[in-house]
Write a protein that binds this DNA or RNA. Structure first.
Length: 305
DNA sequence: TATCCAAGGTAAGTT
DNA sequence: AACTTACCTTGGATA
C-alpha cells in the first residue's frame, strides 16, 4: 500500500471533500460506513471514501481511499494516487478566481458560502455516461446504489488492505449485460438504454471522450447519439467528466430555481433556456454556480416548497 | 395499512 | 420544431 497526503493549507477557495463527493455530481465514490447519500457523516466530516477503477495509464485495477483531516487530504492506495486525486477532485482549479468570475446574487452567494470548498469533479467518461443515463427520474441515493450494483455484478474485483472492492465495469464488461440482467439490478426502463450505450462504446462506434475539443453545444449534440442521453444528461457528462465548466444541466431543481429566481431565463426550449441561464451565471464557469445551487436547494429545500 | 406521488429525463409518435 | 405520452421502481408523504 502507498499512502500520503496533500496539504490543503493554501489551496485557493478551500476544499471540502464531503460536499464534493456527496453533492450528486459523482457516483464513483462510497463512504466506508456504507451510508453515503443517506445520512450525515458519523465522524464530523472526516469519513474515509473509497473508489476502485482501472487506471487509464495501464488499465491496472486500482483502489484509492481518501479522507479530509486537519487541513490535509490523506490517501491510501494501490499506487501513488496524488496526481490522480488532483485530477479527480479538481484540486487544480483556482476556486477563488472561479467564484469571483461567476454571478454574485443572493441565491448563488448563499450556496457558495454554505458549501465553501466544494469543487466540481473530473470523473472518467464512460462511468459518468452510464451513471447519468441511470439518473433519469431517479433519486440520488438510488442512482448511487445502481452504480454499486453494476460494479458488483460486472466489474473487476480488487483485494486491497484486507478488503474486497469492485471497480466500475469497462464498456466491454458492461456490453455483456442483457436487458433483463440490468432490470434485475433495478435499473427499470433505463436498462435497455445502458445495454445499448455500453455496446456502442464497446464496439468502438463512439466514445464519450470523442466530444472533447468540440464547441460546447456541438459536444452536447454529439453525446445525444448514445441511447438514453438527451440534452440534460449530455450536459452532466460535459460538466462532470469532460471539463466543459460552462455546461448548466437543466434538471428539476435548476428549473425550479429558474422559475423562482430567474423567470426571465425561461425561454421555453432547453437550448435557449440553457443559453440564458448560462449567461446569467457568468458564462465560462456557469456550471460551478449550477452545481452549488443544485446541491444547496436539494439539501435545504423541502420537496413541497 | 393502503394509496399516491415524484425522483438530477428520454424516446417515440403526433401535430 | 414543439407538444404528448409511456416508461421501471421505490421511499416518503398523505389519507
Amino acid at each position: 500500500m502507498e499512502q500520503g497526503f496533500i496539504s490543503l493549507d493554501s489551496i485557493p477557495g478551500d476544499f471540502d471533500l464531503q460536499s464534493t463527493i456527496e453533492s450528486g455530481q459523482s457516483y464513483m465514490w462510497s463512504r466506508d460506513d456504507g451510508r453515503m447519500y443517506e445520512e450525515t457523516p458519523a465522524y464530523g466530516g472526516t469519513a474515509w471514501y473509497y473508489t476502485a477503477f482501472s487506471r487509464p495509464t495501464n488499465g491496472e485495477p486500482s483502489v484509492v481511499r481518501v479522507r479530509q483531516h486537519d487541513h490535509r487530504l490523506e490517501w491510501e492506495a494501490t499506487f501513488d494516487a496524488r496526481d490522480a486525486l488532483v485530477q479527480l477532485l479538481r484540486l487544480d482549479d483556482d476556486l477563488e478566481a472561479i467564484i469571483s468570475e461567476t454571478v454574485d446574487d443572493s441565491l448563488v452567494r448563499t450556496a457558495y458560502e454554505t458549501y465553501r470548498g466544494m469543487r466540481l469533479v473530473r470523473d472518467p467518461p464512460f462511468p459518468t455516461l452510464i451513471s447519468f443515463i441511470c439518473s433519469a427520474q431517479m433519486r440520488v441515493s438510488r442512482i448511487h446504489g445502481m452504480q454499486r450494483a453494476l460494479a458488483r455484478k460486472f466489474g473487476d474485483t480488487i483485494k486491497f488492505d484486507g478488503m474486497t472492492y469492485h471497480a466500475f465495469p469497462t464498456a466491454e464488461q458492461l456490453a455483456t449485460a442483457t436487458e433483463s440482467e440490468l432490470r434485475e439490478l433495478k435499473l427499470g426502463y433505463r436498462a435497455p438504454y445502458v445495454a445499448s450505450t455500453a455496446k456502442m462504446v464497446a464496439a468502438g462506434e463512439a466514445h464519450p471522450e470523442d466530444a472533447i475539443g468540440m464547441d460546447y453545444e456541438a459536444a452536447r449534440e454529439y453525446l445525444t447519439r448514445f441511447v438514453g442521453v438527451g440534452e440534460k444528461v449530455a450536459d452532466c457528462v460535459l460538466l462532470f467528466s469532460l471539463g466543459y465548466l460552462e455546461a448548466v444541466p437543466l434538471d428539476t431543481w435548476i428549473r425550479g430555481a429558474i422559475a423562482d429566481h430567474y423567470p426571465e431565463c425561461d425561454r421555453g426550449s432547453y437550448a435557449e433556456t440553457s443559453r440564458a441561464i448560462r449567461e446569467r451565471f457568468g458564462g465560462t464557469y456557469a456550471g460551478y454556480a449550477q452545481t452549488y445551487v443544485f446541491h444547496y436547494l436539494r439539501a435545504n429545500e423541502s420537496p413541497s416548497e
